[in-house]
């Protein structure tokens, strides 16, 4: 039962992460295009640092860093008269009230908390990729379109929202589609973030003996993982087909080769 639930966990993660990281990416792309140098530097730094480093390093790093950051902030707010240093040698100690989540909290809160950390980490990493894609897409919109908008007396803001943003999606879609595929394929890494996802359950249920139970069957992990492989293959295939359909739909009436071809066919 929990095994099937964990599939829902993965799907839920995908469903939440995709829009959140798209928003991160949009913010990053807009920041990189900004005319204010510090904002532009921030946007470019964000994308280039996240891209240059293996994502698994980020997954391992951010979870601890975020956890400690949250606990540190709560520590500053909740126990101002705590005199001992937080870093005692190799230990990271905050006052008990500042633990996030509280050590008295029920198990499900811990799980939800971990899940939220995981989503945030995924969103930061994939937001950087998405920022790169969207940045390219914004630059790909024909300059003439923007100049025409200005000629019609639109302000910068209006040009951005009414002309640039609606047109950039068709240029962004191949990249975003790729990104979606990578996101799907990155979900097993959830396992490393301490979320009980499908990889965790495949190992638990497949093994003949675990910490809690001794199953009557032998080592079935191979078959469980084979099943996961098939699941992911099917998932990516379906996504591929869906993205193809979407591309066709978005190309309709656009000033691109594909759009032109559709116009001629019609």
């Amino acid at each position: 039962m929990l095994f099937y639930q964990s599939f829902l966990t993965v799907l839920l993660l995908l469903a939440i992460t995709a829009p959140v990281s798209l928003a991160f990416g949009f913010g990053g792309a807009v920041a990189s295009r900004s005319h204010v140098p510090p904002v532009a530097w921030f946007g470019k730094l964000y994308t280039s640092i996240v891209r240059g480093v293996p994502d698994i390093v980020f997954f391992l790093f951010f979870v601890i860093a975020l956890d400690q950051g949250i606990e540190w902030l709560r520590h500053q707010a909740l126990c101002p008269d705590w005199s001992e240093p937080i870093r005692q040698g190799n230990d990271f100690l905050v006052c008990p009230q500042a633990k996030a989540p509280l050590s008295t909290a029920p198990q499900w809160i811990h799980e939800v908390y971990n899940f939220c950390l995981a989503i945030f980490t995924f969103a930061i990493v994939f937001g950087a990729f998405a920022a790169n894609v969207l940045y390219g897409a914004m630059n790909a919109v024909p300059k003439a379109q923007l100049e025409t908008a200005h000629a019609y007396g639109m302000s910068n803001r209006q040009t951005f929202w009414r002309i640039l943003v609606p047109q950039m999606w068709v240029y962004a879609l191949p990249g975003l589609g790729n990104l979606w595929m990578i996101l799907i394929k990155a979900t097993p890494l959830l396992f490393l973030l301490g979320v009980r996802d499908i990889v965790y359950w495949a190992r638990e249920l497949g093994g003949s003996k675990t910490a809690v139970y001794a199953y009557p069957h032998g080592d079935w992990r191979l078959y469980y993982f084979l099943f996961l492989l098939v699941f992911y293959l099917a998932f990516t295939r379906v996504s591929e087909i869906a993205i193809e359909r979407m591309t066709r739909k978005l190309s309709h009436g656009q000033a691109t080769a594909a759009g032109e071809q559709m116009r001629r066919e019609a």
Partner: peptide, 22 residues
């Protein structure tokens, strides 16, 4: 190409290891 591009490398490692052990 489809199998190796369509599935996560992470799962491929797990699967390969378990298969090799067997």
């Amino acid at each position: 190409i489809f199998v190796f591009r369509g599935s996560p490398l992470f799962i491929q490692f797990f699967l390969a290891y378990l298969a090799f052990v067997k």
